[in-house]
């Protein structure tokens, strides 16, 4: 029972964190149609910059300032690079941003070394939020989840209820017409890109201190965030939230489950047969937890090619 409870909680928090990183990509790739393979690099940069700043200006100022810097880096990339190759199509964007992701990773390795840095939350934040059947649940995990929820509400309100949001949604559909109505569309897109980078940076700055801040954190998340955006349905924030939670929960349960497919097969009487075949059937679920997102994507793409929540700009 405790396993279910804690896996659920951890899965939700991890899912919310995934959402915070993918939300930006939903705007950038899902809505604006810009392929940005370096999106998860913003997440990594957020963590590293916050780590460095925290030593200088303290933890809280660092996790506020680091995402802003990441947002500016995003704006510079959109304006200086992506905008130039956008007209040549997705292949160019993919190659460019793939290169950027590589450059960011190598730069981080050069400056901070190949292994994780000791970025951690201040001692006064290490207290339990509540106690469940004798075990403490850390406050900071809850804080990560709440931040993500606030960001979801903020983005939703911005896109649906404000004039800026209306113009963004119009510009996604018919950029030329929006220009003819007097709006500077490239600037609008640059702003949206910056907000997306800022969000990923925020996720990194906050969660890097709790999980690990290491040079491969971008690569680990790089594919998953695309999975979230595609599974959720291009351009749908709600979809991204649902897909994030789904993947978060599944990953969390798989990672904690000490069972193999054959054991599950045993429930329907296939156990011995599956054990005899061996191979994938006897592999513990925990060892394939990392591929859960990809499996989810395959299933969703086969059953619902437009994603869980279709196209809703």
């Amino acid at each position: 029972m405790d396993f279910v409870l804690f896996s659920t909680l951890n899965g939700i928090i991890y899912g919310l964190l995934l959402f915070m990183v993918s939300a930006g990509l939903t705007l950038i790739f899902g809505m604006m149609g810009i392929v940005n393979f370096a999106h998860a690099s913003f997440y990594m940069l957020g963590a590293y910059i916050a780590y460095s700043l925290a030593k200088l200006i303290g933890f809280w100022p660092a996790i506020l300032l680091a995402p802003l810097l990441v947002g500016l880096i995003g704006v510079a990339i959109e304006r200086g690079m992506l905008r130039r190759v956008h007209k040549h199509g997705h292949a160019h964007e993919l190659l460019l941003t793939f290169g950027l992701a590589y450059v960011f990773e190598e730069t981080v390795k050069m400056l901070y070394g190949n292994y994780a840095v000791p970025y951690s939350i201040p001692a006064d934040l290490r207290f339990p939020a509540f106690t469940l059947s004798g075990a403490d649940y850390p406050f900071y995990r809850v804080f990560i989840g709440l931040t993500a929820l606030v960001m979801f509400a903020l983005l939703f309100w911005l896109l649906r209820r404000t004039r800026v949001g209306i113009i963004v949604r119009a510009a996604v559909r018919r950029p030329e017409m929006v220009g003819a109505l007097g709006h500077d569309v490239p600037k609008v897109f640059m702003g949206v890109f910056g907000i997306g980078a800022w969000l990923a940076g925020l996720a990194g700055a906050i969660s890097g201190a709790f999980f690990t801040t290491s040079p491969n954190m971008a690569l680990e998340l790089g594919i998953i965030v695309f999975v979230v955006v595609v599974v959720g349905g291009l351009g749908s924030l709600e979809g991204a939230l649902v897909a994030s939670l789904l993947i978060g929960l599944l990953t969390s349960f798989a990672a904690g489950a000490d069972v193999a497919l054959a054991d599950l097969g045993g429930l329907v009487g296939l156990g011995p047969a599956m054990k005899a075949i061996g191979g994938i059937f006897t592999v513990k679920l925990a060892t394939i937890a990392a591929s859960v997102p990809i499996l989810v994507m395959l299933v969703v793409l086969l059953l619902r090619p437009s994603g869980l929540m279709g196209d809703k700009t």
Partner: peptide
């Protein structure tokens, strides 16, 4: 803008 309401348009 077919994705926006009349008033949003």
């Amino acid at each position: 803008f077919d994705n926006l309401s009349v008033e949003e348009n």
